[in-house]
């Protein structure tokens, strides 16, 4: 168990090389001086400079960020409500349909979700733009939030809520003071998931938007279709860097926290006969 066999070492090495080399190459070539992405012509940061002066990209980034923040926030509220309903709501009319609608978008091909939303927006005569992308993103990401939050709620000791009620809290107070703080980490990761899903989405946004709003993935898509460009490499590197540092910091913080809790629990056992 403690020593890996050579075969295991090889599979891990190749596995992680396969996962990370393409991204690493992308980052390296974003510092390439040459316009030809595959020929190394010396170190340069000029593509980052060009990227930052490209109005179209900056506009698209701003739209994307706006959509992601708004849609993930609404999705977190709705998704948490849905999770609470599914885990704690008991029986109500149409419960099966409700849970079906929560799980279906997770496996639905994006092209279908996108197509159906576009047809709805046209059907009710809605102007397509930032607003419709927000609606579309909220709809599918609330389902992801709800799955994350409900898996936390399922392991939540119900006696905690009962204890709060027993001590005089109203059901709403019990939720606000006890349940919410305890499931907060799951709610936060639900928000982060919704946020990255929204940042990342190309297909649904392409369907849901109109000529007035272009998101970053759509912008990347239209220039990528013409082939590899160093500017996109630079943009990709920035995005990879942001996400990687965010995730690494988050996991370090949560690891430090769990190590501390473990140490304290061990220390506490020594007070047993105090």
């Amino acid at each position: 168990m403690n020593r890996l066999s050579p075969f295991n070492v090889v599979s891990l090495t190749f596995g992680f090389a396969f996962l990370y080399l393409p991204m690493l190459i992308l980052v390296i070539y974003s510092f390439n001086k040459s316009k030809l992405v595959t020929v190394w012509a010396g170190f340069s940061t000029k593509w980052y400079g060009e990227l930052l002066s490209n109005e179209a990209f900056l506009d698209a980034a701003w739209v994307t960020l706006k959509v992601a923040v708004i849609s993930s926030s609404i999705a977190t509220v709705l998704g948490t409500m849905a999770a609470y309903t599914l885990v704690r709501g008991g029986r109500f009319f149409g419960r099966t349909l409700f849970s079906g609608m929560i799980y279906a978008p997770l496996v639905m091909p994006e092209v279908i979700t996108g197509l159906s939303l576009l047809l709805l927006f046209i059907g009710v005569g809605m102007d397509r733009g930032v607003m419709t992308i927000v609606l579309a993103h909220t709809t599918f990401s609330m389902c992801f939030v709800s799955v994350v939050v409900s898996s936390r709620l399922a392991t939540f000791d119900r006696a905690l809520e009962e204890a709060a009620l027993d001590l005089g809290a109203s059901p709403f107070e019990a939720f606000r003071l006890i349940t919410l703080p305890i499931i907060a980490p799951a709610v936060v990761s639900g928000w982060l998931l919704a946020f990255t899903l929204s940042l990342d989405d190309l297909v649904i946004a392409s369907f849901a938007t109109g000529p007035s709003a272009t998101t970053l993935p759509m912008k990347i898509w239209s220039s990528v279709r013409l082939g590899v460009s160093p500017e996109i490499n630079a943009l990709s590197s920035i995005l990879i860097g942001l996400v990687a540092s965010g995730v690494i910091i988050a996991s370090l913080v949560s690891k430090r926290h769990s190590v501390r809790v473990q140490q304290e629990e061990r220390a506490a056992e020594r007070f047993e006969n105090d």
Binding site: D157, A159, L160, E162, A163, A164, L165, D166, L167, G168, A169, S170, P171, L177, I178, P181, I182
Partner: peptide
């Protein structure tokens, strides 16, 4: 409802609120 009764309960699992200190747990009610 339970929150309107002059009855309190000590739970089998203790149900101590993990995010509150001992002091705050006792002060909750």
């Amino acid at each position: 409802p339970p929150n309107k009764r002059a009855v309190n309960m000590m739970f089998q699992s203790y149900a101590l609120f993990p995010h509150l200190s001992v002091w705050e747990n006792i002060a909750f009610g």
